[in-house]
Amino acid sequence: MTWTEADTGILLVGVLCAMACALPGCFLLLRRMSMMGDAISHAVLPGLAIAFLISHSRASWAMFIGAAIAGILTALFTQWISKFGKVDRGAAMGIVFTTLFAIGLILIKKTADNVDLDAGCVLYGAIEFTPLDQVVLWENESSLLRVPRAALVVGGALLFNALVIGLFYKEFTLASFDPALARTHGFRPMLMHYLLMTMVAITTVASFEAVGSIIVIAMLIVPPATAFLITRNLPLLIGLSLGLAALGAILGHLFSQLIPSLIGLPETTSSGMMATMAGFLFLLVWLLGPQGLLRKSKIEEITEPGLPPKL
């Protein structure tokens, strides 16, 4: 394989996107809501279709608003169903996202069948094509700095997430670990919940057009979960997640070029491989990390006698 400018572009988009996802993913993990990313990324479909129906164009801003609204509605509906109907949150999430996804499939079929907007494109994205749409950042006689437009979008999402988490770090932490205490201190845990959901929705929407929602779902969950096996310290958890996310994206792109040629097949999608490599890193840490399966001594098990099996 040969390294081209396109590869750099893909890598840049992938890394930025992975890091943008890993940030809110840490708090999703702590709040035991990791599946929310999966739910939101499926449920944005009707938002896209309705935005298209209203604006009659594939203008990015209309799609963005439509999908973001659909994403936040998913979080709202899930909350309502589990609160008013006293339904398990997982089940509520499952009902909301499958129903919205089904509505989205029908709307797209009805309204946008002839346009380049299909469910597959939302799910898989087309990270391979991102380098085709370049934006010139800086230009003078000697040099020219161009980046894919998608890099700006996911970079913006990363910046937004970093800003929000930076501003409300204390509130997020408290609301994640002890919502009741947060409420007594006047921090409004529900507000934090919806802010987190908004972050997830915006990140999902910013990413799917460029890279598809597979990376989003994987990077929201896998790097924070991997980091969680290594540390119990929150700042370290966030830092490690960012690093692991970036590493997963880089490895993913490299292997998407290398592996198929090794076994004599054509190149494959980078986004699928990025998710796979994030999973591979998790497997490594799971087996070999500080608490790793293969390193676990018998003494550790004796320190927790009589506990029921973890279920």
Partner: peptide
């Protein structure tokens, strides 16, 4: 075998397997 909860365990398997499947 880990401190991870249900949601994370399911999320990991879901996203990684699906990514692998697409690839």
């Amino acid at each position: 075998t880990t401190r991870l909860k249900d949601d994370a365990a399911m999320g990991i398997v879901l996203s990684v397997f699906f990514g692998l499947g697409v690839a």
